[in-house]
Design a protein around this nucleic acid. Sequence first.
RNA 1: GGUCUCAUGGCCGAGCGGUUAGGCACCGGUCUGCAAAACCGUCUACAGCAGUUCGAAUCUGCUUGAGACCUCCA
Length: 488
Amino acid sequence: MKAQQDQLVIYNTLKGEKEPFVPIVAGRVGMYVCGPTLYSEPHMGNMRTFINFDLIYRYLLHLGFSVKYVRNITDAGHITNSAGQEVDSIGAAAKAEQLQSLEIVYKYAVKFQELQRIYNLLPPSIEPTATQHIQEQIEIIEQIIANGYAYEVNGSVYFDTRRYMQDFNYGILSGRKVDELENETRTLNAQDEKRFFADFALWKKANPDDMQIWRSPWGNGNPGWHIECTAMSTKYLGKQFDIHGGGMDLKFPHHEDEIAQSCGSFGCNPARYWMHANMLNVNGQKMSKSFGNYFLPKQILDGSTGLFDKSYSANVVRFFMMQAHYRSNLDFTQDALNAAEKGLSKLTDAIATLERIQPAAQSSFDVNMLVQSFYKAMNDDFNAPILVANLFEATRLINLVNDGKEHISSPDLALLKEKMTVFAYDVLGLQKEAAGSESRLAPVMELVLDLRGQARTNKDWTTSDQIRDGLAKAGIVVKDGKDGTTWS
RNA sequence: GGUCUCAUGGCCGAGCGGUUAGGCACCGGUCUGCAAAACCGUCUACAGCAGUUCGAAUCUGCUUGAGACCUCCA
């Protein structure tokens, strides 16, 4: 695995190009990913980012890295945006639902946990919450003030972007130039407390109707909306760690400001590799709450999205997502989901077929090369679509072996079996379909199919077809294969 | 308006200068009492116009179209 570790290449948003992945400490990876704000149930687009970073986490683990994966939960409303508007999303949800802020957070945290289970996400090493780290946030703000990169005005603290730009590059991640930003935003902040339009809040003085308020050296208030990630990543991963991830829409200003906060307090960029997952699209447009074109992960499961005429399992949705690269847009369409559903079953069938294959003295194809292609794909910036294509190449060969047209040796068979299983289930995070889940139905079906088998032996096609049609009406499909009859 | 990204066959989606991506659909075949399923095989591309190059989907320029960010956002 060490050799494979050395081959890993990651696209670093900070550099705008792929580069070899060299962890700060050999064999260890510290990874921080921005998690959800729990003022509502995460929608499918939110889930795509978490599924993609789950894939990355899983592959790093498979390569043998010891990974500390921190993904935060935002349970404090982000009080202001840079236009100075009040946007405490959690507080707003709390008022709308007539609950306390933490009730809202807990309510949706439970749902998020459930979704992670259903979509087969590995739990992160730590899931810290913002409200449990107010003190750490305050301490970092104090440090930034002490370093001269922030100032207090009337109970609020702002990051001093102009002062910061004298020593550091603001815009290093997003490529934004402050003077380009200015023309647009200046007017919005005319009567702001800020010294400069690009300054952002680290701490915001409390409003009378705020639902959550904390004490601070500057009076009662709320933390700004970037500081929590700086506080928590620093606490659990150190001032500098390996990978910082999140959705592409967080690149600016959230991640840019995290960098500014880290540089402003500790003098260094918090992460060496910045990774950004792309958005999920519906009809070519980003799925988003504000566009109203979003739907919930469980609506796909029960078929109530209104967009598709049937439901899909979490497994199919996950496989569908694995067929696009994490840095690409992905369009959520019914045809694409249907294709994923069929493809997935073809793939899992082939893995099951491996169990029945009889080895030959020699292999008629290069199994080792095939397995290497799995690693090659994933080592190239986690290129899951290529991996999937290679798994389908293996699928084709497995079926040919099963038909006696290709051969595989015993050691090669063992290798292929292991790697197919590992890559499909451990790395891609697909789930083995629970066979025979309807335990009470199984013996009944056995009996029914047995009777139908007898009818077929007697060439009593009327009875045989009657049974088949009757079962079809009950939603059970009978398949007459070469090796007997199966149903599903 | 500013910054940036992308335009691939019926659909989804890889590709980063020379090789079949892959899946689904279609079509042909194998199997089958029939059907379905399964398996095998095959076809359809690179938005447009110029340029660089022995060679371009892949590099450059322009045109057209779409999207993201600049407000909360995964």
